[in-house]
């Protein structure tokens, strides 16, 4: 992770779509974890969107997901697509998918995001967390051709948008988790990344590297404990 990733939340907003003359590729700007700068390609013209993150009542990307849910807003969807799509594709390729398979799967992930927009709850998951879970499930479904049974949902309250305060707290905690991940010693961070890329079946790694199982387990536990500690529990 780039260092400036952690200090990126200073971006100013003017709420405009501006034509971007540079040939910057879609979504490669390292400092945009919370959406200050995202580059989207619509047709052949690239636009650079500067999103409002100065609004303290709305975590990043929630407004876009609500706009998809409430108004089937294709422009909001294009912004999300431009920001998350290339990252989902990269993630799937790091997890072993061939480029064409990753492409197809990413399109399915983004379509699922649209279809499930009414189920997104920003007090329980940040946009990145939610999209990760959709990508993981699609990967199991489309690439591994298996199933991942999901827990039942918590009992639903009245159908109202969740408390923005809760959503903001969750977003802050998620950002802290990202910082804690970046601050881990490289070995431990690498291990966690490999776990999420699907490289880390405990027994497989033990076979390939000759490491005893307990070492990996305790390293993961140590990394998790450090993360929890950094999160203040």
């Amino acid at each position: 992770m780039e260092k400036n990733d952690l200090t990126a939340r200073t971006g100013r907003n003017d709420g405009m779509l501006m034509e971007n003359s540079s040939l910057a590729t879609v979504g490669v700007i390292a400092s945009d974890r919370y959406g200050q700068h995202s580059t989207i390609a619509i047709g052949r013209t690239e636009y650079r969107r500067v999103t409002d993150t100065s609004d303290p009542t709305m975590p990043a990307w929630v407004a876009e997901i609500y706009a998809i849910r409430d108004h089937q807003d294709q422009k909001a969807f294009a912004r999300i697509f431009g920001h998350f799509g290339p990252r989902v594709k990269a993630f799937l390729m790091r997890s072993g998918a061939a480029p064409d398979v990753a492409e197809e799967c990413t399109q399915e992930v983004m379509a699922t995001l649209w279809r499930k927009a009414h189920l997104f709850d920003p007090s329980r998951a940040s946009a990145a967390t939610w999209i990760y879970s959709i990508a993981r499930n699609k990967q199991i479904d489309m690439i591994r051709k298996s199933r991942r049974p999901e827990p039942e949902d918590l009992p639903w309250g009245p159908e109202a948008d969740p408390d923005p305060g809760e959503a903001l707290t969750l977003q802050e905690e998620t950002a802290k988790l990202g910082q804690a991940l970046a601050a881990l010693p490289e070995k431990q961070r690498d291990l966690i990344q490999r776990a999420y890329f699907g490289d880390l079946s405990h027994s497989e790694i033990a076979e390939q590297t000759g490491l005893p199982l307990g070492t990996i387990k305790s390293r993961i536990r140590l990394a998790l404990d450090r993360l929890r500690h950094a999160m203040g529990n």
Partner: peptide
């Protein structure tokens, strides 16, 4: 899952097809 989101967001980015 949140950790997975953070890992995904820092795993780089790959251009989608033009008509994606």
């Amino acid at each position: 899952d949140a950790l997975g989101g953070e890992v995904m967001m820092t795993a780089g980015s790959v251009d989608l097809d033009e008509d994606a």
